[in-house]
Design a binder for these strands. Structure first.
Length: 195
DNA sequence: TGGGCGATTCGCT
DNA sequence: GCGAATCGCCCAC
């Protein structure tokens, strides 16, 4: 049993039944585990269905189908033909909005993460959407799975962390929208926040 | 601290 | 065909 996640409340599916812009900052400081391996979420990005940078913007396809389903599910897709990226579906079924999980601070299963990712620095284990999927063993087989059931485990944060906000990374549309959220001062971000 | 580049698969026009 | 919600590595400053 993970020690860090104990004592904080389990995040229920109804948590995601709200606007992505409400849910995204509240995920900062929450604990994410996959098969008992994971840590504290320190960076996310919000993708609303009206946002040109969202996968759902141009309508439903086979790949993004999970985004159009009920909230509280995992949407996993392959990025650049190499990496996997993990999203949490938000709002109501059909609204097709999601939060991209970009970085976590590893707290549980460090040894297994290192086995999956041959990097010497702890800070490089989960500091990016593709990296954390590799470290946590997330792949297409997690696409469409409920976040409140194994192998997923989500625990709410206990305090109220300081949040920093900035433009999203790696996109070409709506590049100026400040929909990236991070834990202020964290050493485990994929990239620093300006100012 | 930040930019440029190659790798590599698949969805979509 | 094109290009992507990335990464790791190299280089310059």
């Amino acid at each position: 049993m993970p020690t860090t996640a104990q004592g904080s409340a389990k995040i229920r599916r109804s948590f995601f039944d709200r606007s992505v812009h409400e849910v995204a900052p509240e995920l900062i400081g929450a604990t994410l585990m996959v098969d008992g391996i994971g840590g504290v979420i320190v960076e996310v990005e919000a993708y609303h269905h009206t946002d040109p940078a969202a996968h759902s913007y141009n309508g439903q396809t086979e790949r993004n189908g999970v985004m159009f389903g009920p909230p509280g599910m995992a949407y996993v897709y392959r990025s650049y033909g190499i990496h996997w990226c993990l999203n949490f579906v938000c709002e109501a079924a059909g609204s097709a909005s999601a939060v991209l999980i970009r970085a976590i601070e590893p707290t549980e299963g460090l040894a297994k993460m290192r086995r999956r990712r041959a990097v010497p620095d702890v800070r490089a284990l989960c500091s990016g959407p593709g990296k954390l999927c590799q470290a946590l063993g997330v792949s297409i087989k997690h696409n469409g799975l409920a976040l409140d059931r194994p192998p997923f485990e989500l625990r709410a944060r206990t305090g109220k962390p300081e949040i920093v906000v900035g433009p999203r990374i790696g996109i070409t549309k709506a590049v100026d929208e400040p929909w990236r959220y991070g834990l202020k001062g964290s050493r485990f971000l994929s990239k620093g926040f300006k100012s």
